[in-house]
């Protein structure tokens, strides 16, 4: 399985994302610059965190119109797994691949620490190696992670089991329904504020994020490799 790690001007978690899949999983991975006009040949798309285009105007608003995003949208429509973390999540929201929008954190602070997440749905291609209801430790690092959507959208998210991760015990940013991560209706696009790529080794404080990437690879192998 070959991953594309999309790099925008201002991305700063691209190396961690690359490390997670390339070094920890021994999957193939390449950095893809935001000007690229094709994502052919990649089986999974990773949008890393950071401050793309300085977060000018709104987080993710300008990155959403970069050349490569047309290809990310195409890959999502083809059913390829697309993971956006932190700023990557914000870009997916701006691009309309996921519903809703981000507001400033409720107390206006940039939060940077490890939090507990509850796995709400373990039947996605991103979470099959977790168990439903499991509590995992994953770091957050954001100033705008206060997820918002209208009531109708929230009902839809609940009904389709699109809420994949919620904050456990405490809600650090004020996000609606404690939402930390959601998928699209089809289930092949996941956006989440916490950083699984920063939790792939106990040396880093937690290895709970590793299984997310393992789930993606496992799902891909099962559907693409004969006699897997």
């Amino acid at each position: 399985m070959k991953f594309a790690v999309i790099v925008f001007p201002g991305s700063n978690c691209d190396v961690d994302m690359f490390h997670a899949v390339k070094d920890e999983l021994s999957a193939e991975a390449e950095y893809v610059w935001h000007t690229e006009g094709s994502l052919d040949g990649y089986d999974g798309i990773l949008l890393p965190g950071g401050f793309s285009y300085g977060d000018y105007l709104r987080s993710g608003a300008i990155a959403r119109f970069s050349n490569v995003m047309n290809e990310v949208i195409k890959a999502a429509e083809e059913g390829k797994p697309v993971l956006g973390v932190c700023n990557g999540f914000q870009i997916l929201l701006e691009a309309g691949l996921l519903p809703g929008a981000m507001r400033r954190n409720k107390d206006l602070k940039f939060m940077c620490r490890t939090v507990q997440l509850k796995v709400e749905n373990a039947r996605t291609l991103f979470t099959s190696r977790y168990t439903e209801g499991e509590i995992i430790d994953i770091p957050i690092a954001h100033g705008e992670g206060n997820y918002y959507c209208d009531e109708e959208t929230l009902e839809m998210l609940k009904e389709n089991k699109q809420i994949v991760f919620t904050y456990h015990n405490e809600n650090p940013n004020g996000s609606l329904a404690d939402i930390a991560g959601i998928t699209n209706e089809r289930g092949n696009v996941l956006g989440m504020m916490p950083h699984p790529e920063r939790a792939v080794d106990t040396l880093l404080g937690s290895a709970d994020g590793l299984r997310l990437f393992q789930s993606i690879v496992k799902n891909w192998r099962e559907s693409h490799v004969v006699n897997a």
Partner: peptide, 8 residues
């Protein structure tokens, strides 16, 4: 398209 995010 760009200047406002009409969701919020």
């Amino acid at each position: 398209k760009l200047l406002a995010n009409t969701v919020i």
